[in-house]
């Protein structure tokens, strides 16, 4: 039971001040920039909702938005089940499990900009370990859209599977043995054990996995840009790549408006997700 005491805010204060300076302040600035045309920092004109209107009306934005949504949907539907499966597999491995977890965590400590490089090296037709084989079956990540997508999905799965595995394993290993014994006595099927015992117990860990993986894949830049820079013919032009182009082109007002829009999209998803989680908690 937690005591009620509003003085607890004092303990939050240092964290709050720091997050205010590096988070809230820049966020307000970016929203403000979005309403201006910025030539230089001293030459700024108010343009109101012009940028927002331009962006929302452009077909390219809608197409990128659709692509990013599809990409996130694919990432979540591949990585979450796969991560849970690996966690369940490791759970039955006894002392090997620790080694499995360490293995899965390995890609998480590779510098992000090197991850696409490692994979491009791996599939290089001349020098890669997989290159000659892939070239023989006609794999071509530069000019075939489907193959570019497959490669980016594979790279992203390689990078982030470990996070899903570690968090899912954390939830699974916290389930008391008594639950499983009771299920075994009742003759519950493997699926029933998963559906009624394991899944509810890891829902808290899965919620954070879902949100983290959604946001990071929705805003994927480093991997996608390094692998094919949005190509072939815009097939992997995600939202973040459009934003990157604007920042590189010095159209800061428009870039800020776009950044604000992206933030609002992410905020809407987080809010909907949290609202749903709270309702589920209250129903339980």
């Amino acid at each position: 039971m937690r005591l009620h005491d509003n003085r607890a805010w004092l303990l939050l204060l240092p964290a709050l001040v720091l997050l205010g300076v590096i988070g809230a302040l820049p966020l307000m600035a970016v929203i403000n920039f979005g309403f201006h045309d910025i030539f230089t920092l001293s030459n700024v004109h108010w343009v109101g909702f012009e940028w927002f209107g331009d962006i929302l009306r452009s077909d390219r934005f809608l197409a990128s938005f659709g692509r990013s949504l599809l990409f996130s949907a694919l990432v979540l539907s591949i990585q979450v089940p796969l991560g849970i499966a690996v966690a369940l597999l490791l759970l039955n491995c006894g002392r090997l499990a620790v080694w499995g977890l360490m293995l899965c965590a390995l890609p998480l400590v590779v510098p992000w900009n090197m991850i696409p490089m490692l994979w491009l090296g791996l599939i290089d037709p001349r020098t890669g370990l997989l290159g000659p084989g892939l070239a023989a079956i006609g794999f071509d990540h530069k000019f075939t859209a489907l193959h570019t997508w497959a490669l980016i999905l594979t790279v992203d799965t390689w990078h982030w599977l470990g996070l899903v595995v570690v968090l899912a394993y954390a939830g699974l290993s916290a389930i008391p043995v008594a639950y499983r014994q009771a299920a075994a006595i009742d003759g519950a099927s493997r699926w029933a054990v998963f559906r009624y015992i394991e899944l509810p117990k890891i829902s808290g860990a899965l919620a954070i996995v879902f949100l983290l993986r959604f946001v990071d894949s929705f805003m994927i830049y480093t991997e996608a840009f390094a692998i094919n820079a949005g190509g072939p013919s815009d097939a992997t032009r995600f939202l973040s790549i459009e934003l990157g182009e604007e920042i590189k082109g010095f159209s800061y007002g428009q870039a800020a408006a776009r950044a604000t829009l992206y933030f609002l999209i992410v905020l809407a998803v987080v809010w909907a997700f949290v609202a749903a989680t709270r309702r589920a908690e209250e129903a339980a």
Binding site: V215, M219, T260
Partner: peptide, 16 residues
Amino acid sequence: ILVFRLTPPVVLSLPI
């Protein structure tokens, strides 16, 4: 803090 964690860095890069 959840929102701060989930704000894409690229959104804040310019004002930061």
